[in-house]
Design a protein around this nucleic acid. Structure first.
Length: 277
DNA sequence: ACGAGAACCTGTTTGC
DNA sequence: TGCAAACAGGTTCTCG
């Protein structure tokens, strides 16, 4: 499910019902996620007020009122379901955690593949957390721009597709939005990252920002299941130019060859060979 | 140090 | 139709 636009959409949905609310109860049904939950996770979270929910890259950051932050990642298949008081179905398979607010809302963390994770960490030392400390700039921040991207790509001997998936270069892109951004910037996914440094990076950085902003505005992309905490679908998949569109015509040049798929570092890439060079 | 591939899991789709 | 292989929105870890 989740790249940056999906995580941001989930964050907004959760914030509406969790910020300023006390977590009255935590049901811990399964603790072996990507890593084991920290000791006494449920007891440490129960009774705390969620002051604010932030996002860093694809991580959700629940700032608790005791100086700890609950760090959460949805992995590949993780979802957060929000249910109004009295409407939550009983916990089912892969519902690993359920948080009950003092108003009776139920937030369910569901993750079939268990690539997701949760941890608790002191808020004031958050940037020292091993999963957060090496993350690159937020793509929608002012710190991320053409010159900064150019510098990050300089000298890298790997295809630009792989470089953009590296969260140290820019934090929050995943397999969908890398393909989409490269299409809009007219850059081949096979091009060496080092050769994108310079003029091409000046095109690519705004393309990344724009595709992410448009995706957030559409509530993210729903490929196989719900995205938003409310259960609503995302709609950006209808605006994909290339992702999962192998064989279909390029929306820009309408060339006969159509969108091509290739596999790079084990993952599908979609692109238009005519428009992207 | 860097980059490619394996590994972690389960569910769904595809192909013979 | 049935079964096995391939594939899925991520990221760390290992190895060369």
């Amino acid at each position: 499910m989740p790249e940056l636009p999906e995580v941001e959409t989930v964050r907004r949905g959760l914030a509406a019902r969790m910020e300023g609310r006390r977590i009255a109860q935590v049901e811990q049904r399964r603790g072996d996620l990507r890593w084991p939950l920290p000791p006494h996770f449920d007891m440490r979270v129960a009774g705390r007020v969620v002051d604010r929910i932030d996002r860093r890259a694809k991580y959700l950051l629940f700032r608790l009122d005791d100086g700890q932050t609950l760090i959460g990642h949805l992995g590949m298949s993780g979802r957060m379901y929000l249910a109004a008081p009295g409407t939550a179905p009983s916990a089912g398979a892969h519902d690993h955690l359920r948080f009950h607010t003092d108003e009776g809302w139920v937030i369910t963390f569901h993750d079939a593949r268990r690539f997701g994770m949760m941890d608790l960490w002191p808020t004031e030392r958050l940037d020292e957390h091993r999963l957060l400390k090496d993350l690159g700039p937020e793509p929608l921040s002012n710190a991320f721009n053409g010159p900064a991207l150019s510098e990050a790509l300089a000298g890298r001997q790997t295809p630009i597709k792989a470089a953009l998936l590296d969260q140290k270069v820019v934090a929050g892109l995943g397999n969908i939005y890398v393909s989409e951004a490269l299409f809009h910037a007219g850059i081949s996914p096979k091009r060496q990252a080092a050769s994108v440094a310079g003029a091409r990076a000046l095109r690519l950085a705004p393309a990344i920002k724009q595709v992410l902003e448009r995706a957030i505005a559409a509530g993210g992309s729903t490929l196989r299941d719900y995205v938003q905490a409310s259960g609503e679908l995302g709609y950006f998949q209808h605006q994909f130019a290339v992702y999962d569109r192998e064989g279909q015509p390029c929306p820009d040049c309408a060339c006969r060859r159509g969108i091509k798929r290739l596999v790079q570092s084990g993952r599908s890439t979609f692109y238009c060979p005519k428009r992207q060079t």
